[in-house]
Design a protein around this nucleic acid. Sequence first.
DNA 1: TTGCAGCACTAAACACTGTTCATTATATTT
DNA 2: AAATATAATGAACAGTGTTTAGTGCTGCAA
Lengths: 213, 213
Amino acid sequence: MGIAERKEREKQEMRELILDAATQMFLEDGYDKTSVRNIAEKIEYSPATIYLYFKDKDELFFAIHEIGFQKLLSQMETTRAIINPLERLRQIGVIYLEFALKNPEYYDLMFIMRAPINSIKEKHALEHQKEPACWYYGETSFAFVQQTISECMEQQLIKAENPMLTSMYVWSFVHGMASLHIRDRFLVMDLDSEQIRNMILLALDEMLSMLKK
Amino acid sequence: MGIAERKEREKQEMRELILDAATQMFLEDGYDKTSVRNIAEKIEYSPATIYLYFKDKDELFFAIHEIGFQKLLSQMETTRAIINPLERLRQIGVIYLEFALKNPEYYDLMFIMRAPINSIKEKHALEHQKEPACWYYGETSFAFVQQTISECMEQQLIKAENPMLTSMYVWSFVHGMASLHIRDRFLVMDLDSEQIRNMILLALDEMLSMLKK
DNA sequence: TTGCAGCACTAAACACTGTTCATTATATTT
DNA sequence: AAATATAATGAACAGTGTTTAGTGCTGCAA
């Protein structure tokens, strides 16, 4: 059955062709300004073709959302080498913030925008048994932080006692700074981008020193 | 000059007619689903009329954004009565989070969305002398938090030493939780809305206790 | 080899969106 | 009453996401 295999391969190649074009355009111009028509034009296909490979624009961008999570997760996992969990937590924080500042469009899709998360909700409603790859990287990333925080607690390095609660607010803390910066809300403080960047990294250290036992 | 006055009054009334309709529709269906055409239809005018009173959709929604800030600020200022600045800070946090959870659409416009903030950037570029009412409520709100935190420091109630830095990350902390919740990112934790709400308020207290000297 | 089924693909349309502008209707002033 | 200023609009422009009917090609069975 060589033909069926080739067809499947071609289908995957087409999916990637669309995905690559969409990703490239999205990283340059953002979600809103990347239209299905523009993507189609770029790959020299009709707009309708895209709908043969992705249910809608949301699903297409959810695929990009996942690529973003893979990138972030792989960067975070480099901290596995760090033995001290508190130092590891700090490094995860630095990597997370650096990812947000260097890839604001990815970050937007992953943690700020409403759009591609609707795909998850729909999938979750249909495939009620369990969640497969759909939410996989997000959960793995969160679990990684939670694991690190649990280790900090076991070694009595931090004050907090509830790993889930602590992970939740440590995440919220860095996300708050990243998202307020990306969405320009820090301009109330009348600082330039460089000053804000420094403040954010300073804040991370101050937070960790408060968390420390 | 009674006619000129009446005309001015009528202009203001028309502005409010548009604003009220837009606010109502926006709070029900959100920004994206509230179209200029729908607003026009609701008030029984042509879409073009709206553009005689607001430059574009962004400016219209920035006006709503300001109303949101007035609401939040007036609620925050009820804490002026609280003498202990640390207790006041806690109450500001509770009010902020409750505002976000009860008025997610307002919160979205004020702190998450990219859209209406573009109006500020444009205004800021043109009226280069100073920023008038345009950013007023946002700055006042931030200043109010900063003032409270300064008082905490003066009375040696908290560990931190830089009022601006501390205000920035305290704000980021609560904003992070509010925005991750509003944009459904907390569903990685597989909790229901009530549990999340409790966690958020618990996190606020834990953060304040860490901040405490 | 032919004929048919299935497939990838597309042109065109649908129902929207924000925004602009020439034109009309109304109100005010001369 | 005529001229002017102003308010409001119909219609169009340029775009959006998405659906559908139809075309032409590919692969397989007769």
